[in-house]
């Protein structure tokens, strides 16, 4: 089956700091050869620790920032600001994004109705029709239009604002919606309402979601496939059940294991990683996870493991996997004991 969204070798480095001559002194390796496919109607969850490049990937997809390298295509049509590619404005009709901070992403001086009707008008829909659609959408996201159309963002609760943001993203009638921590700031009782809404809308409008979240339980519930990022790279991806039940990468295993049990009386044996996620300004050589990995051997500090198949569409990048070309070399090496990094 061909993918609806295909992302190939996406890369973004941010130069930071300036020397005497205005040249950057350091480079943040935010996103490094990220590739993935999303099929129509599926939800891809993206997880990983703070700073691992989830939001940067999302912003690159939307062309809110320009990629250094890589291709983004929808139904085989490639988009970008380079000659021969389809214009970014077209891309944004097909793909929309909802952010975590529901307050910052709404214009405080526009009424709710104006906010939702604005996008479609930019894309050539008449004002009357755009307003009618805005009311329908408000109703659809569970906000009574007669109560809410004239209100301003500060007159809404967090959950209500997030519903408005979802309505606004849907107003363009996109096929793909990127949700970047879209429910993270909401309290659990309200979060459940918005998650239900997202599931209903997905069915009704045949949407495809990219769901970015640090809440691993929510990702498991909402996603069909999951992609795990570490320091700008994808270390593992696959169908949600397979990946959660059988994580292949040592980082994924530690990450999933670190979630406290939600059921009383289940005491857990935690795999406690040493140290914090390292600095993307100077990512470790070889496997980027090696300074924190309990299975690291000499080769892991020298060579970068390639992504190999675990089973079916489940993939990971680690020398421990039998599919890795350097697997035999890895097996023969002694384990190195390493100092916990600071």
């Amino acid at each position: 089956m061909s993918a609806l969204l295909r992302v190939q070798d996406l890369k973004k480095h941010f130069p930071i700091g300036k020397d005497l001559f205005g040249r950057p002194t350091q480079v943040v390796h935010a996103v490094e050869s990220v590739s993935f496919d999303v099929e129509k109607g599926r939800t891809l969850g993206i997880v990983g620790e703070s700073g691992c490049g989830k939001s940067t990937t999302a912003r690159l997809l939307m062309h809110l920032i320009e990629p250094d390298e890589g291709r983004i295509s929808i139904r085989g049509k490639e988009f970008g600001n380079i000659g021969g590619r389809h214009p970014v404005a077209q891309l944004r009709r097909q793909m929309q994004m909802v952010f975590q901070d529901s307050y910052a992403s709404l214009n405080p001086r526009l009424t709710i109705e104006d906010s939702i009707a604005f996008g479609p008008q930019i894309h050539g829909v008449s004002e009357t029709l755009a307003r009618q659609q805005a009311r329908d959408l408000l109703d659809r996201v569970g906000l009574n239009p007669s109560v809410f159309i004239r209100r301003y963002p500060h007159e809404l609760s967090g959950g209500q604002r997030q519903r408005v943001n979802i309505a606004r993203a849907l107003a363009i009638k996109p096929e793909i919606v990127i949700l970047d921590e879209a429910v993270s700031a909401l309290d659990k009782s309200v979060q459940a309402q918005v998650l239900n809404l997202l599931s209903d809308l997905k069915k009704e409008f045949e949407l495809t979601y990219l769901f970015i979240s640090h809440d691993l339980n929510v990702v498991q519930y909402i996603s069909d496939d999951v992609m795990v990022m570490y320091l700008g790279q994808v270390v593992e991806s696959g169908p949600v059940a397979q990946l959660y039940e059988n994580p292949a990468h040592p980082y994924t295993r530690a990450l999933l294991n670190s979630v406290p049990a939600q059921t009383p009386g289940q005491s857990k044996n935690y795999i406690v990683l040493e140290g914090d996620p390292p600095n993307p300004i100077a990512p470790p050589k070889g496997c980027r996870f090696h300074p924190r990995c309990q299975f690291a051997k000499a080769i892991c500090a020298e060579k970068e493991p390639e992504t190999v198949k675990v089973s079916g569409s489940h993939k990971a990048a680690c020398f421990k996997l039998p599919g890795s070309v350097d697997h035999q070399t890895y097996i023969r090496l002694q384990e190195v004991s390493h100092e916990p990094r600071g």
Binding site: A192, Q193, L195, N196, N217
Partner: peptide
Amino acid sequence: ATVHPGMDRNQALPA
């Protein structure tokens, strides 16, 4: 309403 492992993904959350 709190999402936890083992929830039925085909059922709406009891919000």
